[in-house]
Design a protein around this nucleic acid. Sequence first.
DNA 1: TGGTGTGAACAACTTCACAGCG
DNA 2: CGCTGTGAAGTTGTTCACACCA
Lengths: 217, 217
Amino acid sequence: MKVLKIPDATVNRLSSYSRILEEMLTSNLQVISSEKLAMLCGVNSTQIRKDLAYFGEFGVRGVGYSVPSLLQEIKTILGMNRKWNLGLIGVGNLGSALAANENFRRQGYIFAAAFDIDPAKIGRKLPGGLIIEHLDDLPGISQTSKIDIGVIATPANAAQRVASRLIKAEIKAIINFAPVRILVPKGCHVKNMDFTIELNYLTFHLTRENDPPEPAA
Amino acid sequence: MKVLKIPDATVNRLSSYSRILEEMLTSNLQVISSEKLAMLCGVNSTQIRKDLAYFGEFGVRGVGYSVPSLLQEIKTILGMNRKWNLGLIGVGNLGSALAANENFRRQGYIFAAAFDIDPAKIGRKLPGGLIIEHLDDLPGISQTSKIDIGVIATPANAAQRVASRLIKAEIKAIINFAPVRILVPKGCHVKNMDFTIELNYLTFHLTRENDPPEPAA
DNA sequence: TGGTGTGAACAACTTCACAGCG
DNA sequence: CGCTGTGAAGTTGTTCACACCA
């Protein structure tokens, strides 16, 4: 049980394991083998055992894993055993949709503050009851509302500027929905959710297929 | 110039190269070296040359790459040199926000149809002018509107069912915003945009840091 | 000379094969 | 006996080092 670096892919798979285990739990399944879980996640069973081995020995040889306790372990590893406060920056169509989304709250991710710079929006109330604040007030509100994660939902050209403000407000994690890669100093974590990059990925493959690489030898 | 398999990572990087090149172009920069482009993308310069080498030889030794023609090449590779029709399924908060987003259109991704199953929504018009159709009409509309890509923005429990319908309608690419991994047969491409998985990734790292792995030996 | 294109070395991740334990 | 946990092998992706050419 060393303190080695965990591959990103492992962390992402843990999320999908937790999803499946959650389902198993509601079906009242008590025990599951890595083989069965693997099938449900579409991965190799060794992969699961290796992923879990980074964090401990959670299984029982000859039997499998206890669904409730493995789920608990994974949730603890991923930090899902507590609540996290999100600060939304940019209350446009996308930002509002995110704030209204119940999935986040269910998983423990709470929108605790919302910011914009449009004077027409400041002071308005979001469906959830959140009042839109001016971005200039970020530093103070970030403290009092204990914002853990910044959610950037601004236009592309504002994203980097907003990111810098978040960092200055000592927010250590950012999820960025603007279509630009933002740069942050070491010690701050960023996830870019770039829809057009994913569309590009799809059209790359669609293009490749319809356009057979080698029509004839 | 073989027909080998292209790593996913390469395809994603090509998207970011195109972003940067687009910026360079508006700044009227004509030539760029892999070294400089690498710096702007935060990758290794060899990486860029290797990525491009999958598709041809686009550079000039001792000089670098022509910005406009490299951009053109990359766009062609990614299928960005044409328009693609998107079919939106699920016109809730997120779906509406996606349909209203101008970034997609600018990149050539056009919402050509929108579907739901809520009778209260069918027939209503989206801000862009699109009329919401009943999901049952997908097969026909998919043909007439030439839908290339399905965009799933339904609740989690409907996503797999919708995916199966998309596949039956011979749609070969899906981008899924519902928080479940959907399964599709080979030959159909899927990108899962799972916000909570990304949040889990962030909280994993936040948790790991505040909780130093080895307090003392 | 300067920067591309690429074989060879390296690093990271995944899968295999099986020892070990309940 | 069955399934976990894990060293070793295999595979995939990245970086180095340099030949090559404008």
